[in-house]
Design a protein around this nucleic acid. Sequence first.
DNA 1: TATCACAACACCTCAGACAAGTTGAGGAGT
DNA 2: ACTCCTCAACTTGTCTGAGGTGTTGTGATA
Lengths: 222, 222
Amino acid sequence: MAQVRREPLADQAAELLLGRIRGGEWALGERLPGETTLAPQLGVGRSTVREAIRQLAGRGVLQSRQGAGVFVTALDAPEDWDVVLRRADIVTVIEARIAIETEAAALAAERRTPAQLRLMRRALATRGTPEAGVEAHVDADMAFHRQIVTAAHNEVLTELFDGFVPRLRPAMIDMLRLRPPLDEPTDHRAHALLVEAIAARDSDLAARHSRTHLTALKENLT
Amino acid sequence: MAQVRREPLADQAAELLLGRIRGGEWALGERLPGETTLAPQLGVGRSTVREAIRQLAGRGVLQSRQGAGVFVTALDAPEDWDVVLRRADIVTVIEARIAIETEAAALAAERRTPAQLRLMRRALATRGTPEAGVEAHVDADMAFHRQIVTAAHNEVLTELFDGFVPRLRPAMIDMLRLRPPLDEPTDHRAHALLVEAIAARDSDLAARHSRTHLTALKENLT
DNA sequence: TATCACAACACCTCAGACAAGTTGAGGAGT
DNA sequence: ACTCCTCAACTTGTCTGAGGTGTTGTGATA
């Protein structure tokens, strides 16, 4: 027998409204129907609707102005980031990684310091030894890519990359275990080319190399 | 003369409660006095206290359990991600936005459905009326850009974009207030070109238009 | 001592009333 | 024809009173 999950109506109403907001029923800045309209529509009393609205207002999603109405101010504050990533398809995550990393590569080409370039080259060297085992190889690869993102001097991009790692790492390890490393030398040279483009301060080329490499990786997972 | 700042009692009550919680009047996990006690103490009605509590519950500070009471669950939870974004320079955030949105534009060109294309065009139309006020214009613009990200059919990218909005929106409004809209018609045509590229399923062109537009925006902020 | 019934108390929900702010239509005056 | 003003019809804000449901500690009972 299913345990009766009793949730306050106000919470349910808030969840329902949030769903409709995220579904695009009301765009950003748009006005919601009045409380007196919403209440019978949701099958609850007006005060309950008000409490649901207050709840979403506390989360920054809604804002109400007396006399004018209730307005959408955001489409949900960052939902638990971990949850989103865990649920997301690995290909989806890689696509996001492509977005972050190609841009980071371009910025890194413009902003990298000599010291960072040196660190990149060292990371590249330790990356090229897959004999140490799959996990070590993946870790070395991740460390290399992180060097590049760091060199972009953009805290947000770095933070995003770090957020991806926990989801990416196991997937990479699985992939390498199942599928042969498919031409490691070529793969390694792609990385070397990327570093050289950054060294030459050629941001377009760096972005292109980064994209090519990661797209190949994505294809390999499809 | 000071502008009469009329704030809803519920908001004031929430602020007051949050202050007392932060002041350590009730420790983490402790139970607050009942609504019937709090109401006369704050000089407001019971429903107003309830709305204040709901608001704080939405922020994750309080949690109420029927029959048991209201408990402190956090001392104002500044989620890590929020902190990063709030602290980050707006230019840094825009650079991250460029990464997300150009990739999203390219993917949207490949994956958009006819319905989504229609929604894009409608959002573009409502976007083109800056007479409605700065805030409305920014909201319409955000809604337009979100349509494109949505059409990329990548949940992670969408989530990232949504995460940026709360930081981006006020910055955009400030910028438009301080600096004249600088050639709105051109700006609007750039958006139209982007939509057409997506309509034509030309992902390279879409990415290029997106990047050009956002880079101009970034320059304008520097 | 261990168990159980129960009363007190908590939050949950509703309905109704009135206050106060906002907006747009339409009339008065120029 | 245009501007300004009034006002009615919205909207959200607040309070009150009533009854419902879940929780917890107390005290009687075995």
